[in-house]
Design a protein around this nucleic acid. Sequence first.
DNA 1: GTTGATTTAATTGTACACAATCTAATTGTA
DNA 2: TACAATTAGATTGTGTACAATTAAATCAAC
Lengths: 147, 147
Amino acid sequence: MGDKYDCLKISNQLCFPLYACSKEIVKRYKPYLDPIDLTYTQYIAMMVIWEEKEITVKALGDKLFLDSGTLTPVLKKLEQKGYVKRSRSKDDERNLIITLTDEGLELKKQACSIPAKMGKCVQLSEEESAQLYSLLYKILGSFSQDE
Amino acid sequence: MGDKYDCLKISNQLCFPLYACSKEIVKRYKPYLDPIDLTYTQYIAMMVIWEEKEITVKALGDKLFLDSGTLTPVLKKLEQKGYVKRSRSKDDERNLIITLTDEGLELKKQACSIPAKMGKCVQLSEEESAQLYSLLYKILGSFSQDE
DNA sequence: GTTGATTTAATTGTACACAATCTAATTGTA
DNA sequence: TACAATTAGATTGTGTACAATTAAATCAAC
């Protein structure tokens, strides 16, 4: 057993369960996000905007590991729904500033119960979750370094 | 510190590093996959087909956590490149059988060096990788149960 | 102070990813 | 045997992702 092609077995990859797990978890957000009319990408964008109140597309992209090609349509959608405002910075016209609206702030209250519901859906102990979290950020950290 | 909205902080989510990590790793495959003209999705599909020699779209989808909406265009693309053949099962005309071609088998040799290269890109010890692998499959396993 | 380089977003094109729907083949059951 | 239910795959529509390019604003060096 174990030929020279074992390295190409899907069960020997670390990337694959990562990829699959991410997709499956995002899929499981849908029942909780549908009622507040947000997609997963819109939700994580709103999370950062809720925290920052005001942020440039560049800074948002750095936090979410997303570029303007992805964020531009997402933010236009969020603006269209009335949750954010998009306006150029006076200091530097290149920067687009995303601002939270009153409706956007209101939405935060409704989103508040989602993390707990999702937490129950992932069947890991407190300790295992912490371990997983730490390993993932270790990888992300190493990626940020050699940017 | 720590208000009632802490649960909505992006840094308190487990899903987010999973999502980001998955994307970043897939992105890092590109330099290695470009030379053999495969995308990441095409690559993991080929991995299973290399192992199985012959598999239905349904079975492939179960292994990859992908449905026909995603796989149909991917497999048509792989057929167009000459790596697989698509043909209906004689036993049950509903089943589409994916078969490896000689060119598809040839490609396996060139892909062989990719896992090792990617392994170096993820800065985890042997033990940490094993831990991460185990945690991810624990989640995927729990998902498969309540299918 | 002007010009070349850099930076920020937007745009374009390609490729997923998935929900929802559709069609054809098969199965189960009365 | 009919016929309802199920199953497999394809199709359609929406929403990401990202590479590559573009355009405008700013910065840097002289």
